[in-house]
Every structure is written in C-alpha cells, then in structure tokens.
Design a protein around this nucleic acid. Structure first.
Lengths: 336, 336
DNA sequence: AACCGTGCTGGGAGCGCTTGCAGACTAAGC
DNA sequence: GCTTAGTCTGCAAGCGCTCCCAGCACGGTT
C-alpha cells in the first residue's frame, strides 16, 4: 500500500488548467458539440498534461448508466463453471465488449446469497444489461429475468419457456446430425444416453435423436437418462447394456458421458466402433484423445458468447434483435 | 425493453416512510451505531415494504470505494483464457468473494486497447483491488502494477522480478517431484521439454528438473524448449528424438505438450512407458484419457484463486500478507 | 436600426449516498 | 440542582460528473 491517496485528477482541475468552465471541459471529454476549436484543444492538452481519466463512478451516477454488463451463471453447483465451456463463452463475450466502454462483471450465482444478489441486480439496475445462463430446469431467476428492469439476453434456452432474447446452439439439429450419421453408417439399433432433462440442451438433444430415428423409421426406445457427467455416463451405459444388449450404436448427449461410456464398453469387451458406434456432443478437447478418438458434435462456443454480447449491445442501443440459433456440426472421428 | 424506467426507491423515500432523517436511515442500512432501537426497526420495515436496495454507484461515489475488484489476465493472445485453468481460478476467486460485498470484474487484456484500459485502472482506482495474472515475460503491466495506486496481488510470478504480493503454485517443487519420480523408477537418460522460458512457470519447472537431476548426479542436458501447446510439444518431441535418441524418460512441462509428444512417440514406435516414461504437468482432464493415462503433477488451481482473493481481501483490510506458494503433487498413472 | 437565428459559454442543479458536526436530550455523579 | 458524559438526531456539505438553460456575441435579415 504505497500512496493510494494522491487524489485523483478531477474535471475541475482540467477545466481550470485549460481556462474553461467545467461544462466545456466535460463537452470535449465526451466530444459533444458546441465547443470552439481553441478550447477543445486547450482541454485536450490539459487532459494529457494532468493525466486525467474520468471517474467512472461519478459519471455513472450522473448518467444513470453503470457502464458494465454482467454475465451471470445460475446453477446449483459452483463446479459447473469449471467447465471449459464457460471459459470459451467468456472469451467470445469479452472480444466484443472490448470494443465498447463496457466492463464485464461475472456472477456465479450458486449460493443462495449470490442468487439474491443476482435478483437484486435484475431489479435495481446495478448493471446496464445481463447475459444469463441458467443451468437448471425451472430456475425462478429465469422468469424473474424476463420481466426484469434491465435488458437480459439468455445463453441457451430454459426448458420451461422461450425467452424473448436468446442465443442458443442448434442442439436439436446437432443431435439429429449425429443420429443420422449413425443411421447412414448402417446402424439400426441405436440407443441414446440423454443429458439432464431439466436443461434445455438435454431436452433438445433428445428430441433431435427422436426425430432422426422417426425419419429413418427406426426404434427410438433404447433410452437412458444421464446427467452430463462422466460418472453418470458410465452408469447410464451399464444400464443400457443391461436393458438393451442388442444395441449397435449410441448417441450420447455429452462427451463427458461418452468418455465414461467408453470405459464401460471396454470393460464389457465391446469394441468401438466394431460392436457399437459412439457419437458424443460438445467436442471438448479430451474427445480427441480418447481411445478411439470420439466422433462428436461441435458447437461454436466462442460465437455463442460473441453473439450474446452483440445481442445485448443491440438491446442497449434500443434495437429489437431476434433470437439466434447457432449451427452445430458433426466431427467424424474413429468412434463411428 | 419493458418499463426500465420505474425509478429506483431511494434512501430518502425510505427515510420519509420511516419518519426519520436520511442520515438515520443511512446508519441503519450500514448498521452503524447511534440509532435508537425504535427508529432502527422503523427503517428496517420501510426497507422491506419499499423493497429498497441501496444504489451501489452512489455509495461508491460517496465512500470512494468501488465495491469491485478485478481479475486481469494480461496476455498476447485472447486464446489463453480459453484454457480451463482460468475457469477454475475464477471459481476459486468467486467462492471467496461471494461472502463479501465485492463484485468481480474480468479483464482480458489482450488487445492494446484493453491493455490501456488496464493501465488506467491501475492508476485511477476504478477498482478497489486487482488480481493480475500476467502471462508473458517482461510485461510492462507487471511493473506498472507494483507501483499502482491500488492493491495488486499477482497470480504466479513474472520471470523478471518478484512481486510484493503473490500466490503461486510450487512449480519448481512439482517439477522436482516429477523428475525424482523418474529417477526413482530407474531412468537415467531423462530429458525435458520445457514451457515458454519467458513465463515464470516455464522457468521454474525447468529449474526443478535441473535440481532433481543434479541431486541424482544425472545428466541434465537433454533439453528442448517448447511453448506449452500441444503442437509445440509434438515438435519438441521430434527434435528430442532426433538429438537424443537414447533417452528413456522425459519430463514435459505441460500436459498439453505431453499429449502432443505421446502422438509423436507412438508414430516413432516407442512404447510408453516401456521405452520411454513420460510425466506431464497440470493434471488437465484430458490427462486421464490419453493412451496411456498420463502421470502428471497436479496443482490446486481453485485454491490458487481462493488464496489470491483472500490475500487481496487482506490487503484491502490493511493487513500485510506474505506471499504464498501452494503445494503441487505427483499423480502417478500409467505413463511411468 | 431593430430583429432573429446560430453557436459558444458557464452557472448551477442535480444523481443517491455517506459523514462530520453541532445541537438536543438522557442518565448519571456529586 | 447542576455539571459531565454519553447517546441520539438531522442538517448540510460533499463525492465527480452530466446536462439543462439562460446569457452572449456575432453575423445576416428585413
């Protein structure tokens, strides 16, 4: 703690040094009109001489704009955020925010204390806008957000309703792609391990699977519900094997679960893709390094973040953006 | 954009409804002394009746405290942040911040614009404190931070100097552990693929390797410098194989590089760990899923974040914390 | 010569909150 | 009963900035 006290340079000092009024100085800082060339230059000089930087707080108070948006992750477990997924989203968001004067605040609303904070935020305009990723089913926050006092864009869609503004990945389309891929490979007894059915992504991927099989005229009853986790995937695969010993392929709603499944399959002496073909979802880094490398569905995660930010910016600018669904694509590797 | 306009409830309204002065109301909000029980209760009632939430901006202006700290990642590439490492750090940080009234702001200082922003932040107290992770060598920001106008704690140490407040993982110790493990396994021609030598972690891990071999009286000249990336690891391994065909083990400064190396080793027909034993660093998730699963050094990443936040909190409270070095540990798997 | 833009200019009133301070009031202490 | 200390209480002065507004100067119209 050196000299945290040497007071900040204020607008008044700048004005004085430049020999103009505070109002005039303010105008040139925000380069507003109605300032003569001469004064404008004088102020600019003073600014660099003094090393003036506007006080964001004071400005915020005066303009009633915070100058910051928040990315809120509402979830029941703090660990979800450890998922690299979010790191990527953040990179996307931050890449577009970087070109604005907005700061990014992060809220991991996992404890009830944090949830309350988020709620208040939504009500009381402590941020100019929020990007909300709500992970579990009927999150009350999600509803609250819809009628919030501040613009909200959703990342992903809750299961229970369709928010007004959101950007989502085409989970259903991706799942269909994956399943069709299995069909095209000649598999006929195609099972699925779903994600959590109280999450939008889990539900959508399951629907995609059903659609593809319906089109192909195949049986879509080999279903076990998982939870997106590796351990859950292993469990689900054991159950699948027990209940549907005849399966020759399975579409698994996340790579993590696929990895768990692979282990079980190996222990059970099933060859992949010989006996059973596997396709996962997400294209996490690990998917390239499994044995065999995992065929999976990739989604443009950074774009997701980028588009969320852009949409929010649009909202802040008074536009009325339309929801966005980002394409997913099949990445064929050795597990099919 | 519904009715973002219904004005906020202010302290004055609370005071009026409670029949007290604004000062009194303020005191109970901040539960300061010198308020009679009766008025205290009255104000509290008014607060809930009105749904009052203090305006953070106004408070910040009055108290000269922002109520937020920032996590800044200074780097030349935006992609570094995509590393799950940071997601974990953030989880740690946010878990301790959650119990305070501080918000977390994120700055990925990757463009020069963002760098400038960070610089100003450091000078002008736009945050109450900052946690800085500076990735590349002689980052001018790092020096700037040391004499900043606001408390700064470093995550990891720059190569060029030792900051006053930091928390770091015991990279050197971990590397020593890893190398000793190789020695203990009877390997004698132990090479290393280092990380970037302009990063603290890269340097420290290299030193640890050297130390261990010195103690064991073994040759420490089988060295190739990598860059922490998977591709770089592959490249380095090819070079290593070409220059030191006799090696029987290699300590690789990151799991990513180890993964790249594994591929090269396989192509070269070398068995792991039969012909050459491998140990990585970081214990990323993928490390469990390589073929064979990777022996590696794990570091307590969430703790790193947690301790950074705690240290910053201490600083804000006027304490003078001492730097912290977190232990790393060897995780033995099948590659050794 | 009276009149009307048009573009600058600075004064000053906020934005919502904290806090030093002086006054009022209460409870002891002698 | 009067001082002394102690506890409330509200006034008012900020925190640093924005922005409305009235005032002014200047040049061009009638």
């Amino acid at each position: 703690m050196t000299d945290h006290l040497k007071r900040q340079v204020t607008l008044d000092e700048v004005a004085e040094r430049a020999g103009v009024s505070r109002s005039a100085a303010s105008r040139v800082i925000n380069n507003a009109p109605h300032v003569s060339k001469a004064k404008r230059v004088a102020v600019q000089r003073a600014v660099v001489d003094l090393g003036y930087v506007p006080n964001a707080t004071a400005r915020a108070l005066a303009t009633q704009q915070v100058g910051a948006v928040v990315l809120a992750i509402s979830s029941d477990s703090p660990q979800v955020f450890a998922d690299p997924f979010f790191a990527e989203v953040v990179v996307g968001i931050s890449s577009v925010l970087e070109e604005t004067d907005l700061e990014l605040m992060l809220m991991l609303a996992t404890s009830s204390r944090a949830q309350t904070k988020l709620e208040q935020l939504l009500r009381t305009r402590q941020a100019d806008g929020v990007m909300l990723m709500s992970m579990h089913g009927d999150d009350p926050l999600a509803h609250l957000a819809e009628k919030a006092d501040v613009p909200v864009v959703f990342g992903g869609r809750p299961v229970t309703f369709e928010p007004q503004y959101y950007v989502d990945a085409d989970n259903r389309g991706g799942a269909r792609l994956a399943t069709e891929h299995l069909v095209a490979a000649g598999r006929t007894r195609i099972a699925t391990i779903t994600g959590r059915m109280d999450e939008g992504a889990g539900m959508a991927r399951y629907k995609g699977y059903q659609e593809a099989l319906a089109v192909a005229g195949l049986d879509a009853s080999r279903v076990v519900h998982g939870d997106f986790s590796e351990e859950g995937g292993a469990r689900a695969m054991r159950q699948l094997l027990a209940e549907h010993a005849d399966l020759d392929a399975v579409f698994i709603a996340s790579d993590q679960m696929a990895i768990g499944s692979l282990r079980v399959l190996k222990d059970a002496g099933k060859a992949v893709p010989g006996d059973v073909a596997i396709v996962g979802f997400n294209d996490i880094t690990s998917a390239r390094h499994t044995e065999p490398p995992l065929t999976t569905v990739g989604q443009p995660i950074q774009s997701l973040g980028r588009e969320m930010a852009r949409m929010l910016l649009g909202l802040l600018a008074g536009e009325t953006p339309t929801p966005l669904i980002l394409p997913t694509r099949l990445i064929a590797r050795a597990s099919t």
